[in-house]
């Protein structure tokens, strides 16, 4: 049987905000989903070119970034547990670690993109258009769009986590009102989830 409760004021319903966050995550998944469709079609049409182009990418950096994100996912998941155990100090610490890891991910990404730029590879660059085949152009076009959009989500996720961190410090997000932190966590896991698929699709083509 359904039990539904009306909250008059303050309108606080943790289940509702969790459901809302999940629905938002679905839209994010479909947003990247569109890109995955494009990727899979073009990889199907240009299998060799994608393989050649993937050699430009450094598996080690990709793997390091994967592990960084996985660890950060764990720390933010732990922070929700520690919030419920009313361990404010540990929650704050875990969130700070998460933000630091996100920053390291972005720095890695910055250097990774920088190397591409040094090699003359960026969307619409002369080197790409004149010296490379169409499959490579598509590969790098998608590489920049997908990792770029993912990086944008990292930045958004960091902002959300920083807001959650502030609220935890101020005490407005606590064991009885954990929604903001839990939703920040969900969003961060989404970012992780997308990377889990981006990594093999771009780095592991051999």
């Amino acid at each position: 049987m359904e039990h539904v409760v009306q909250h008059s004021d303050p309108h606080y319903d943790p289940e509702a905000s969790k459901l809302g966050m999940w629905l938002f995550i679905f839209t994010e998944l479909l947003l990247f989903g569109g890109l995955f469709i494009v990727y899979s079609i073009y990889r199907f049409l240009n299998p060799e070119a994608f393989q050649m182009a993937a050699h430009e990418l450094n598996i080690t950096i990709g793997a390091i970034n994967t592990i960084i994100l996985l660890v950060s996912s764990m720390t933010i998941a732990m922070s929700t547990s520690s919030l419920q155990q009313k361990n404010k100090g540990l929650t704050v610490l875990l969130l700070e670690i998460t933000i630091m890891l996100a920053l390291i991910f972005l720095i890695n990404k910055y250097f990774e993109w920088g190397v591409k730029f040094e090699h003359g590879i960026w969307p619409g660059s002369q080197h790409l258009i004149n010296d490379m085949g169409q499959g490579e152009i598509l590969f790098f076009g998608l590489y920049f769009v997908m990792t770029g959009l993912h990086a944008l989500h990292i930045v958004i996720g960091m902002i959300i986590i920083i807001v959650a961190l502030r609220r935890v410090q101020k005490g407005t997000t606590h064991a009885d009102r954990p929604s903001l932190l839990e939703n920040a966590g969900l969003y961060w896991h989404l970012v992780d989830l997308i990377w889990i698929f981006l990594f093999p699709l771009f780095y592991l083509i051999h």
Binding site: F26, T27, L30, G33, G34, W122, P123, L142
Partner: peptide, 23 residues
């Protein structure tokens, strides 16, 4: 479930116009 797909498609068109990513 459908709107995000057009969102990303329009972004791709915009990127195509600005950078020429080729998709």
């Amino acid at each position: 479930l459908a709107t995000p797909v057009i969102g990303i498609t329009l972004v791709l068109v915009a990127l195509e116009r600005i950078f020429g990513i080729g998709v």
